[in-house]
């Protein structure tokens, strides 16, 4: 089990920069748009990481249980995840900037980072695919969970580095600008999602 954990961790550490690339467009504008304060930043990041962990564990359990029958996740999954992520970010930007956000106001709720983390987690990126292929050979739910938990830990080192950007929020207008960037990011990912589903 130790060797399996080490292998997952090594995969996460070696491919984590790519994971940061996948998560940064969601996470960075969102983190910068939120209120200042280290406690607040840690809470946002923590929720994002928990959401992401939930997605990883879901995959580990499903693949561990179904084995080769879950060899290829449905091709529409990434498209749907991108689209939902995009719509959530657009809604969040509206909630932060519109005088009367209507239903979008709910997207500025504390649970938003959790949802974002989960949606970011179910995006099938190349490092994730590499981990997934290895899962298929493990043959038990327990071993899959250990492997993916270690993989998750390895990649989290890079994702957590986004906290270093938090001091930038001291610039007064930057938070407003970051919430606008969330909207642009949302448009981008919604368009990518639609393109993937086409």
């Amino acid at each position: 089990m130790k060797a399996l954990f080490a292998e997952g961790l090594a995969l996460g550490l070696s491919t984590g920069l790519y994971c940061l690339g996948a998560c940064a467009p969601f996470l960075v504008p969102y983190l910068l748009a939120e209120e200042t304060g280290w406690r607040r930043d840690l809470t946002v990041l923590g929720k994002f990481l928990i959401g992401r962990l939930a997605a990883y564990m879901l995959f580990a359990v499903v693949v561990g249980y179904l084995g080769a029958r879950a060899a290829t996740p449905p091709p529409w999954l990434t498209g749907v995840a991108f689209l939902l992520c995009g719509l959530a970010l657009i809604g969040y930007a509206v909630a932060r900037n519109a005088p009367r956000p209507g239903a979008c106001g709910r997207l500025a709720a504390p649970g938003m980072p959790l949802l974002m983390g989960f949606l970011a987690g179910i995006n099938i990126c190349p490092p994730f695919t590499a981990g997934l292929v290895r899962l298929l050979t493990l043959g038990s739910v327990g071993r899959c969970v250990v492997y993916f938990a270690a993989f998750y830990l390895g990649t989290t080192v890079y994702v957590a580095a986004t906290l270093l950007l938090a001091p930038l929020k001291a610039v007064p207008r930057l938070r407003a600008a970051a919430s606008i960037a969330c909207g642009l990011s949302g448009l981008w990912f919604a368009a990518m999602g639609l393109a993937a589903l086409r």
């Binding site: 910068l32 930057l174 407003a176 600008a177 970051a178 960037a181 642009l184 990011s185 981008w188």
Partner: peptide, 9 residues
């Protein structure tokens, strides 16, 4: 603040 949002994104 749109240009700053464009810059960040």
């Amino acid at each position: 603040d749109l240009p700053a949002g464009v810059l960040i994104f």
